Simulated assay, not measured.
Amino acid sequence: MQLSRVNQWLLRPWGKPVLWCVCALPLVGLLVAAFTDRLGANPAEKLVRETGEWTLRWLWLTLAISPLREVASLPALLRYRRSLGVTTFVYALLHFVAYAWLDKGLVVDDIIKDVFKRNFIFVGVAGLLFMLPLALTSFNGAIRAMGGRAWQQLHKLVYLVALLGLLHFYWKKAAKNDISEVMVYALILAVLLGWRVMRKGGFKALWQVR
C-alpha cells in the first residue's frame, strides 16, 4: 500500500519540476560560492573538480534507476531517468567549459594540445563526445524518428560513458596518489552493472537492459 502511494506521488505532474530544482542545487551552490568568494584558495580548480564529481554522481543515479525501480517495486521511477541523463550531460558540459575557460583561457590550440598530451583529459573529452548523441536524442520525437530498438541500442553507450568517466576520475586522482574516493565510485558502478549481469545471467545483459 505504501509503495503504491509512493508510485502515485512519483507520477504527479510536479515530480519532474521538483527533480529539476534538486538537480540545479549543486550548481546554484557553486555559483553562490563563486560570487561570495567562498571557493577557497583555488576557485578555478574547485569549480572544475566539483562539476566533474557531480557529473559522476548524476550518471550513477541515472544508472541506478533500473535497479531501484525493480528492487523497490517503483516503476514510476522510470519517468525520471531521461531527466537525470540530461542533467548528467549538462554537468559534464559545464565541467569541460570550466576546464577550457578557467584552466586554458578558451585558447583552442592549448586545449587541443592538452587533450592529446594528458591521458585523463583525452578520456574525459571522449566521454563527453559519446554523451552528445545521447543528449541530442533524449526527447520523445527522437525515439519516434529512430524507432525504439535503434534508440535503445544507441543509448547503451551510457555504459561506455560510465567506464570512461571512472577512468578519467581515476587518472586524475592517481596523479595525486589519492584513489580512495575513486574506489567508492568504482564499487557503486560494479554493483550497478553487476545487477544487470546477474539479472540476465551473463555479460550480454549490459546490452539488453538499462
Score class of each variant (00 low, 15 high):
S4E: 15
R5E: 12
L10E: 00
R12C: 02
K16S: 12
L19N: 01
W20H: 09
P26Q: 02
L27S: 13
L30K: 10
A34L: 14
F35I: 10
T36V: 12
T36K: 08
D37T: 08
L39S: 06
A44V: 04
L47F: 02
V48T: 13
R49A: 14
R49K: 13
E50C: 04
E53V: 13
R57A: 11
W60D: 12
T62M: 12
V71G: 00
S73Y: 10
S73I: 11
P75S: 05
A76M: 08
L77Q: 03
L78W: 00
L78E: 12
R82Q: 10
V86F: 03
Y91I: 05
A92I: 02
H95P: 03
V97S: 07
K104A: 06
G105R: 14
G105A: 08
V108I: 14
V108L: 15
D109Q: 12
D110W: 10
I111D: 01
I112W: 14
V115L: 09
V115E: 01
V123Q: 02
A126Q: 02
L128I: 05
L128P: 00
M131F: 09
L132P: 00
L134P: 04
L134N: 04
A142E: 05
R144I: 06
A145N: 07
A145L: 11
M146P: 01
H155C: 04
V158N: 08
L160S: 15
L164C: 10
L167G: 11
H168T: 09
W171M: 14
D178A: 15
I179T: 15
L187N: 04
L189W: 02
L192F: 06
L193Q: 08
R196M: 07
F203H: 05
K204A: 15
K204V: 14
L206V: 08
W207K: 03
Q208D: 06
Q208G: 00
R210Q: 12
